[in-house]
Computed example of a mutant assay.
Amino acid sequence: MHQQQADLYNAILLSALVFFLVAAGLVFLVFTYNKRRKIHAMEKESLKKTHETILLKSQIEVQEQTMQTIASNLHDNIGQLLSLTNLTLASINIDDREKASKKIDNSTELVNKSIKELRELAKLLQGEKLLEKGIGYALAQEVAWLKKSEIYQINFTNQLEEQLETSPEKDLIILRLFQEIVNNIIKHAKATEIIISLTQQQENLLIVIKENGIGFNYHDVSKNNSVGLGLHTIEKRVKLIDGTFQVDSTIGKGTQITLIIPYP
C-alpha cells in the first residue's frame, strides 16, 4: 500500500516536472520568437529609414542638378547671347544703313536664341509645378514641348492622364529620368521618329521610349563615355525607386528604353 502511494507520488512529481519543463520550454520559445520579431521589425524599420534617406538624397541631387543646369545655362548660354546682343547693338552706326540693318537682324537672331534658351529653363522650373496635376500630365507636357520643335515624328500613347493617385517621393525622379532619356535622344540618337508609351499595368508604371536613330552597343558605350555614365545614372535612380531599366539597341536601327516602376 505504501509502495503504491510512493509510486503515485513519484508519478505526480514526474508529471509536474514534465509539465513545468514543457511550460518553461513554451515560455522560452515565445520569448525567443518575440525577441526575434522585435529585432526583425527594428531591422526592417532601419532598412526603411535607410531607403527613405537614400531616396531623399536622390531627390535633393535631382533638384540640385536642375539648379546647376539653370545656373550654367544662364551664365554660359543666355548670358553670352545677351552680351553679344548688347555688343552688336552698341556697334550699330545709324549712318551706315546697310550694315546697321544686318546688325539688327543679327541682334534679332541672338534675342530669339535667348528666348529659346529661356523657354528651356522655364520647362525645367515648371516641371515640379506640373507634377501637382499628376505624373501623366507632366510627362504629356514634356512630349508637347518635344512636338513643338517639329524635328521628330512623334507617336504618343498616354493612359496616365486620368491617373488620380500620385507618388510624390517618386514623381520628380520619374520626370527627371524621362527628361534625361529624351535629352540623350536629342543629343546622340540622330533619330527622326520617337514612339512614347505611358501605361499602368497592375501596380506598375510602364514607360517605353523607342526611336529610329543610329543605335549603339550598350555594353561598349556603358564602359567608355559620357553616354554610358548617363545611362548608369538613369539605371541607378530607377533601381532606387524599386524599378527596372531595360535598354534594347541595334546599331543602325535605333533604341528602345523601358522603365518599369512600382506605382504609386
Results as ranks from 00 to 15, higher is better:
E120S: 11
I241E: 02
G79E: 02
K102V: 04
I194P: 01
D96N: 13
L131W: 14
A122C: 15
L82P: 00
K239H: 09
K253S: 05
L175H: 06
I78V: 08
E64D: 08
K236H: 05
K49P: 01
S15W: 05
Y152I: 02
I174Q: 09
F216C: 05
W145L: 15
G127V: 09
I54M: 11
E162Y: 10
R36N: 15
L146R: 06
V247D: 06
Q80S: 14
L14Q: 15
A71K: 13
E150F: 08
I151C: 12
K99A: 05
L55F: 00
H51Y: 11
E180G: 01
E211C: 01
I257H: 00
I185C: 02
S114H: 01
K187N: 03
D105E: 15
Y218N: 07
K48V: 15
Q153P: 08
L84E: 13
I214G: 12
E180R: 03
L89G: 06
A140V: 15
I241L: 07
I39V: 04
D96R: 02
M67L: 13
N77G: 12
L74C: 10
G25H: 06
I154C: 04
I241M: 01
S15R: 09
A90C: 00
E161K: 03
E45M: 04
I195G: 06
G215S: 06
E161A: 11
S149L: 12
H75Y: 01
K253T: 08
N212A: 02
L240T: 06
A6Q: 15
T199D: 14
T85S: 10
F178D: 05
A16P: 06
F19T: 13
S46W: 01
Q246S: 06
T233V: 07
E132Y: 15
G127W: 07
N77D: 11
T53E: 09
L198M: 02
F216A: 02
L89A: 07
Q59M: 07
K133D: 14
H75I: 09
V27P: 04
Q163A: 13
I12W: 10
I181S: 00
R97G: 13
S249C: 02
H75W: 09
A16I: 10
R176P: 01
I54T: 15
T233F: 03
N86W: 08
Q59D: 03
V30F: 07
G134P: 00
E169G: 05
S58Y: 03
L259M: 02
E128G: 13
R97N: 13
L56M: 08
R237V: 02
I207N: 00
L131G: 09
Q4D: 13
T244G: 03
N155F: 05
I70H: 07
A191E: 06
S114Q: 00
I241K: 01
S222Y: 10
S46I: 04
N184R: 00
